[in-house]
Amino acid sequence: MGLDTAKLRKRILGEHLPLLLCLLYFAALAPFAEGFATSYNLVNVFSAMLPLLVLATGQTLVMITAGIDLSATAVIAMASVVGAMIISGDVGWLAGNPLAVPIGIVAMLLVGAVVGAINGTLVAWFRMPPFIVTLTSLMFFSGLAIWSTQSKAISALPHSFLILGGNDWVTLAIVATVVGGIHILLTRSLYGRWIFAVGHNPKTALVSGVPVQKVLVGAYIAAGLIAAVAAILITSRMESGSPVHWQRNLLDVIGATVIGGTSLYGGKGKVLWTVYGALFLTLIDNSLNLLNLSHFTIMMVKGLVILAAAMLDVLRNRENG
């Protein structure tokens, strides 16, 4: 009996700790935050979580290779602007064309793939540090997006496009496909094994016949594509293409991934953990808004809560290690 509870405890603390934290946080705040536990609000929480979750899943992929992708929000800006320039009923190049929406979506995905390919090539073939490479991409493509629109938002997007991020069920289906796909990729496929091996030890991976450079480029392209999917959802939800959508949320993306338990040093990470991390951050944001704290208090409290969660993680690792 002792063994079983110990095993269960280890499993909960090792695998599902962030979920436990979410539940605990929810239970602790429900009596105080008015409307926290209402179905309207819970739908809100889940709907707000979806774009963050998609982005954090891409981040997880890159982080497992011991990299980081700071360019995610620049992909959103660039893809959002490019997509809207194509499909907008006002100023779109293909305004009124029945194929505008599919072409726009393909173009947005292409933007993500191109940015990812640039990042991956510089990291894998030129052996530049991922932090610098993606930071540069972030600056360049955010700047390009603002410059090409003169920081104006582009609206009048076709109705068929607005469904993608506006209807929670459609969004959920898209997100579940992406997140589930990456989960299967990481846990079941050859490519997933290679990603972990490269993250653990690229030298060993190379000697063992893993195409290290291709794996790295692939991971960054995948992350770029995933960020483009997020761009589609966000552009649709905000009913406008804009170079400033989500520009201040980059650290939420990285935060959700790391709080979930994915290691910044590579080789360790799970999509499920990232789901928990995204849920945790969204819950914090939502609850602090409900508590009617001032903006600056929210930022401070959020920092402290994340610190507390990270500290708990350190304690947990010390116990296990």
């Binding site: 008015e34 409307g35 309207y40 609000n41 809100n44 400033v244 959508h245 201040r248 939502n286 409900l290």
Partner: peptide, 17 residues
């Protein structure tokens, strides 16, 4: 904080309350 997505969430929170 200059973020229209956050503003959307905040308005939804007002609705919740």
């Amino acid at each position: 904080d200059s973020d229209s997505n956050r503003q959307l969430q905040q308005i939804k929170t007002f609705v919740t309350r």
